[in-house]
């Protein structure tokens, strides 16, 4: 391990907080999804760092599974974005304040 695990965790935590801030503060749906992507990548970095720290392959394998789940999630989410744009005409999340279209 070339750096202490704590530094990897700190860096991943910073990335996660940045993504979380984007999810909470931005109103554009695309930017919110980008924030989610950054949070998922921070988690992947933690998994790889743990794999290097304990010298066990499971961390890297779970990072690969995380990538596949992220791909599935993002394809559904982007389809939803297209659907919302088509049916409501906007992707500003503040405009989605009703339960029934």
């Amino acid at each position: 391990m070339i750096v202490p695990l704590g530094h990897v965790l700190l860096f991943a935590g910073l990335l996660f907080v940045a993504g979380l801030a984007a999810v909470l503060l931005r109103r554009n749906l695309i930017m919110i999804l980008i924030g989610v992507e950054i949070m998922l990548n921070a988690v992947g970095l933690v998994l790889v760092g743990a794999s290097a720290y304990w010298r066990h392959p499971s961390g890297q394998l779970f990072a690969l599974l995380l990538m596949a789940v992220a791909a599935a999630e993002i394809s559904i989410a982007l389809a939803l974005v297209v659907y919302l744009k088509r049916s409501r005409g906007t992707i500003d999340v503040n405009r989605f304040d009703g339960m029934k279209g």
Binding site: I30, L45, L78
Partner: peptide
């Protein structure tokens, strides 16, 4: 960074899957 942490395979997947496929999907939708 993945490569530096001893995960060359995962680094390749990161470039192909994330930086390639998912980002192109984002650009398509935008």
């Amino acid at each position: 960074l993945y490569f530096l942490l001893g995960a060359p395979m995962l680094a390749a997947w990161q470039v192909i899957l994330y930086a390639g496929a998912i980002m192109v999907l984002f650009l398509f939708v935008i």
